[in-house]
């Protein structure tokens, strides 16, 4: 078990971060060059102001018509994404790791706050799962990969919660927690989790088309 722990908390961390950062850069650069070759219009119509205008309306809770029409989904989506990003970055235990390894540090969340936020992520994942299984229009679009992606995202939070509370077998859970976090990082550039890096581009492009060419709102 020690060997496994040393691997996931040592070399595997490097591999995960290199694949995550390198993968994101690769996806962005290859997309940009493909656009240059095949979709030059994207560059011609991209407009910074209107791109930001659209992104702004879509990252504000209830900032768009559709968000107001789906209040429950909007609440869960925003709570989920905020907690998903903040917990790993500002968890005290994580901040300590950065401090120990690189001697850099930043603010952190109290453990009880982080605990609640973790539960929000898990609850949201359950909500998304139920929605996927019960709403016909979502079910129709669903395939196996959607469940895998959901599992990849939920796993680090479930295992992390388990390990923090030192429930039965928490040492193994800690290893699984680290491993699942690494899998998620690697999956971001190479699965549909890439929507995280592509959101500003797709939204920005539609915002530019609507704003600068079509003189209309897109929210």
């Amino acid at each position: 078990m020690h060997g496994l722990y040393n691997f996931v908390s040592g070399p595997m961390v490097w591999i995960a971060f290199i694949l995550f950062i390198g993968g994101c850069l690769y996806r962005l650069v290859s997309l940009a060059s493909l656009a240059k070759e095949k979709d030059t219009a994207v560059y011609a119509y991209m407009d910074f102001y209107y791109a930001l205008r659209s992104i702004f309306h879509w990252i504000i809770p209830f900032g768009s018509e559709n968000m107001r029409r789906q209040p429950l989904m909007t609440l869960f989506t925003f709570a989920f994404h905020i907690c998903l990003i903040c917990v790993p970055l500002f968890l005290f235990a994580h901040v300590v790791l950065w401090k120990e390894s690189w001697n850099i540090s930043w603010g952190f969340l109290s453990d009880s706050t982080a605990d609640v936020m973790t539960l929000i992520v898990i609850a949201s994942c359950i909500f998304f799962l139920v929605r996927r299984l019960t709403r016909p229009e979502v079910k129709f679009l669903t395939n196996r990969s959607d469940f895998i992606i959901l599992a990849i995202v939920a796993a680090p939070f479930i295992t992390g919660f388990w390990a923090y509370h030192q429930w039965a077998g928490y040492r193994m859970m800690l290893i699984l927690h680290i491993l699942s976090g690494e899998i998620m990082l690697i999956a971001i550039p190479f699965s549909r989790l890439s929507h995280a890096i592509f959101f500003p581009l797709t939204r920005g492009y539609m915002g530019s088309e609507f704003g600068a060419v079509k003189n209309a709102k897109d929210w």
């Binding site: 229009e137 129709f140 679009l141 669903t142 549909r192």
Partner: peptide
Amino acid sequence: VYVDTCVHCG
């Protein structure tokens, strides 16, 4: 990007 980004949310 449109195919890769769609999260099948409906």
